[in-house]
Design a protein around this nucleic acid. Structure first.
Lengths: 157, 157
DNA sequence: CTTTAGTCCGACCTTATTGATCGGAGATCA
DNA sequence: TGATCTCCGATCAATAAGGTCGGACTAAAG
C-alpha cells in the first residue's frame, strides 16, 4: 500500500544522478542527457524522457536543446524537496479522495464521515516528512562510489 | 499521490462505526451488520461485505453468522492500529517496489540504485506514524453521540 | 425436526489508472 | 545548410482497483 509510481521512482533516480554529476568531483557542471541516465539505470528511454519533461515543466530542472544538450538542476540540492519531486510527477498529495475534491463529484460519505479529520492529520504529517527531506539528503547515505555490504546479496544477478 | 484505496477508506469508516456502537452509550455490545453500515455511509453493499470479510480473516473483527448476526470488534480500540487496518486491506506497506520484491522479478535498477536506502527510511517513518495511531484516536473528534444536524437524515430506520 | 430468512463467503466482470510506446517538430552545433 | 540530438504531443497495452453476482452456511422461528 501507499506505493509511489515508477515514474516517481525514475524521477528520484534521475535527479540524484544529475546532482551527483553536476556537483561531483569528476566533471562538475556537465550537462547530462536522457540516454545516459536510461542506460545507467535500465530505464525505458522514452518513459524517462517524459518524466524529465515533466520535471522541467515544473521548474526542477532546466532543459538545454540541441546536440550536446541535456538537463541541469534548476537550483541547489538543498532547495529541492522530495515532496516537490513527487508532487511534480504524481500530482498533489492526497491520502483520501476528499482531500481536494472537485466540484461535481462530492463525497457520498462526507455527511456522516467520521474519519476525515484524523486522516487529514496523517496526511499532513507525511507531507511535512517529505517536505523536510531534500535531494541533498539522498546524496549522503549511498554515494555512487560506496561499496555495498557483501552480506546484502553480494551478487545481484 | 500516495492515495489509499477506497476499500481501505471503507474499512476505516466501518471499524469506526462498529467501535462507536460497541462501546457507545446507547446500545453497548450490539452486533452490527453489513447492511446497516452500507446504508449509513452510502457504501455499495457487496463491496463493503468483501472488505469486512477481509478484516475478519485478518482477525480485526469477529463474524457472527445467521439472523441477528453481524460483526464485532475482536479487541479494544487501543489495540487496533491504523497500520494493521490498512495492511489488512491493501497488503504490506511498500513505498517502492523493491521494498519486498519477490523472486523472479528482480529490480533492474537495483545494482546502481541510489535512492533505495533513503526511501526505506521514509517508509519506516510513515509506518511508525501509522502504527502509533490507533482506532481509539479516530473516535475522539466526531463521536456518534454528537447531536446531528436535523437536516442530515435523523432516522436510520 | 423442518423450514425459512438472513448472513457470510468466494469467484467473476467492468472500469480506470499506470506503464510504456511511437512519430513528428524545434533547436543547436559542425 | 545539413545532420544530430532533444523536446513534445498523442496513442496503445497491461495492471490493479471498483463493483457485481450467485452459492454455502448459520441460526432462529414454526
Amino acid at each position: 500500500m501507499l506505493k509511489i509510481s515508477k515514474k516517481a521512482d525514475y524521477a528520484l533516480m534521475a535527479l540524484q544522478h544529475i546532482a551527483s554529476v553536476q556537483f561531483g568531483d569528476l566533471t562538475p557542471g556537465r550537462v547530462v542527457n536522457t540516454k545516459e541516465i536510461a542506460e545507467e539505470y535500465n530505464i525505458p528511454l522514452e518513459l524517462l524522457a517524459k518524466v524529465l519533461q515533466t520535471l522541467a515543466k515544473n521548474g526542477l530542472i532546466e532543459s538545454h536543446n540541441g546536440p550536446k544538450g541535456g538537463y541541469l538542476l534548476a537550483r541547489s540540492t538543498r532547495q529541492i524537496t522530495i515532496a516537490q519531486i513527487l508532487e511534480g510527477i504524481e500530482g498533489p498529495l492526497g491520502i483520501t479522495d476528499c482531500s481536494h475534491e472537485k466540484e461535481g463529484e462530492p463525497c457520498l460519505q462526507r455527511q456522516h464521515c467520521n474519519i476525515r479529520t484524523p486522516l487529514l492529520k496523517v496526511q499532513d504529517s507525511i507531507y511535512q516528512l517529505l517536505s523536510n527531506m531534500t535531494l541533498q539528503d539522498m546524496m549522503g547515505g549511498t554515494p555512487l562510489i560506496t561499496i555495498q555490504s557483501p552480506t546484502a546479496q553480494g551478487v545481484v544477478q
